[in-house]
Amino acid sequence: MFFDHLVLGATGEFLNTGDILATLVIFILLMLLLKKFAWGPLMGVMQQREDLIASEIETAENSRQESQKLLEEQRSLLKEARTQAQEIVETAKKQGEVSRQDIIATARTEASRMKDSAVQEIANEREKAVAAVREEVVALSMLAASKVLNKEISEEDNRQLINETIAKAGDIQ
């Protein structure tokens, strides 16, 4: 063969047809066996991983959008709640103002009413006291007069007269 002088351990053969055949058979057999037992499963796993990663990325994207949506929703809810709270505070303030006015007005009327009744009371008492004093004065005057005159005068007869005198004295005073 034309490669003869190149081979480690040269032979006189024209062509190593047997070697060629063996090389082919062994290599092709190895390739088929590896495809069945090694490369096939390995490629399957790598493909599976590729799919898994793709689907994971998709899922992540989806959940990101989902959470974005939720966030938006929460934000608008919060805004709404805030406005509502504002409104409530406002209303309460207004309400408070109204009831304050109310209470003040009520208190004022109550106070004036009480003052009036107190004044009335005082006047009455004074009236009563004056009447009592007057009575007393009449009785004392009569006693004094009777003692001065030393003479019994009819209480009934003179009462009218004395009362008039005292009234006149009060007026002059």
């Binding site: 040269a10 032979t11 047809t17 047997g18 063996a22």
Partner: peptide
Amino acid sequence: APMREFLGMSFNLSNI
């Protein structure tokens, strides 16, 4: 080289 003849083909057993 350990050459063998088989079925009219020459095999280098070392190669194989």
